[in-house]
C-alpha cells in the first residue's frame, strides 16, 4: 500500500464555525463549573467565623502564575495567527511554548499548594482552597491536552489559511482557562 495522496481529490470544505461554536459552548460550561466552585468558596469565606491566615497563602507565586498566563495568551494567539498565515514552524513553536507555560503554571501552583501546608480535611477554608485550585488544575490539564491534540493534528498536515478553526478553538478554551485564573487570582489570592 502506498501512502501517497498525490492525485487524490482534496476533501470538501467543512463549515469553519462548527468547531468554534461548540468550543464556545464547552468553554462556557467549563467556566461556569469553575465559577460554581469559586462561589462556594466566596460564600463560605463571607459567612465564616475563622478563615486561614492571609500570610499562609503568598501572593507572589500566584502573581507569577497570572503573568505566565498573560504571556500564554500572546503565544496561543501567535499560533492562530501563524497557522492562518500557513507558517507551520511558527505555529508549532507557539503551541509548544503555550504548552510549556501550562506546565510552568502547574509547577507553580503545585508549589503554592505545598507551601501553604494546608490539608484537605483540615478546615472548610483549607478544603475549599484545595478544591478551587484542584478544579483549576483539572481545566488547565484539559487545556494543555487540547493544545497537544491540536499540535498533533497540525503536525499531520491539518489546518491552514482560513482553516484554522481547530487551533482557534484550542486558543479559545485556553483563554477561558486564563480567565478562570484571573478571577481566582483576585478572589482567592489578592483579597484572601
Amino acid at each position: 500500500m502506498t501512502a501517497t495522496t498525490t492525485g487524490l481529490p482534496s476533501a470538501e470544505a467543512t463549515r469553519p464555525r462548527t468547531v468554534l461554536v461548540a468550543t464556545m459552548f464547552g468553554s462556557s460550561a467549563a467556566f461556569i463549573t469553575f465559577a460554581g466552585v469559586l462561589l462556594v468558596y466566596v460564600r463560605a469565606r463571607a459567612t465564616a467565623i475563622e478563615w486561614f491566615d492571609a500570610s499562609s497563602v503568598e501572593l507572589g507565586p500566584a502573581g507569577f502564575i497570572f503573568a505566565t498566563l498573560i504571556l500564554s495568551i500572546f503565544t496561543v494567539q501567535w499560533a492562530v495567527q501563524a497557522i492562518n498565515a500557513d507558517d507551520r514552524m511558527n505555529a508549532f513553536v507557539a503551541l509548544g511554548l503555550t504548552g510549556l507555560f501550562g506546565a510552568a503554571v502547574f509547577n507553580q501552583l503545585w508549589f503554592i499548594i505545598n507551601d501553604t501546608g494546608f490539608t484537605l480535611n483540615g478546615s472548610t477554608a483549607e478544603f475549599l482552597f484545595f478544591v478551587v485550585n484542584g478544579t483549576f488544575i483539572a481545566f488547565l490539564i484539559a487545556a494543555v491536552a487540547f493544545l497537544a491534540l491540536t499540535f498533533l493534528r497540525a503536525l499531520v498536515g491539518q489546518y491552514g489559511p482560513r482553516k484554522a478553526d481547530g487551533v482557534a478553538a484550542a486558543a479559545f478554551f485556553w483563554n477561558t482557562v486564563v480567565a478562570m485564573w484571573a478571577i481566582a487570582w483576585y478572589v482567592v489570592y489578592v483579597t484572601k
Partner: peptide, 12 residues
C-alpha cells in the same frame, strides 16, 4: 449554562 453549576456542587 446551569448544569455546570450542579457539576460544581457534585465536585465539592
Amino acid at each position: 449554562l446551569t448544569l455546570p453549576v450542579l457539576l460544581a456542587n457534585l465536585v465539592i
